[in-house]
């Protein structure tokens, strides 16, 4: 019985990781990475490693998405400012 839950967790991890790699846009990738983080934590739990699962949960649930989204916001802001400056310079 406990083998079945390990197989399910492993399949979910493989699917989420493949989906994360297949995304092209960083913001969408952050969403999939958040799901992957939680699924990984469950995988570590069913393999009887709760300490590692707790670490994964702590980092992957809120911290990693926040860092990625802040970087995306910074890059987009820079893009917008450069466009505005270019328009001003061209006038």
């Amino acid at each position: 019985m406990s083998d079945a839950v390990i197989v399910v967790a492993l399949l979910l991890t493989a699917a989420s990781a493949t989906a994360a790699v297949a995304q092209r846009d960083p913001a969408r990738q952050a969403l999939v990475l958040s799901v992957l983080g939680s699924v990984l934590a469950v995988l570590f739990t069913v393999l009887q490693a709760p300490d590692v699962g707790l670490s994964q949960l702590a980092v992957g649930a809120a911290l990693t998405p926040l860092l990625i989204m802040l970087s995306v916001r910074k890059v987009r802001r820079r893009g917008r400012t450069h466009d505005a400056a270019a328009k001003d310079g061209a006038r």
């Binding site: 911290l63 926040l66 860092l67 802040l70 970087s71 916001r73 910074k74 802001r77 820079r78 400012t81 505005a84 400056a85 001003d88 310079g89």
Partner: peptide
């Protein structure tokens, strides 16, 4: 460490801007 790390990311994303022109 995590607070300092996030503070630097947040400052860059929310406050710091480049000079124009």
């Amino acid at each position: 460490a995590v607070v300092v790390l996030l503070a630097n990311f947040l400052d860059q994303a929310v406050e710091i801007e480049e000079e124009h022109g």
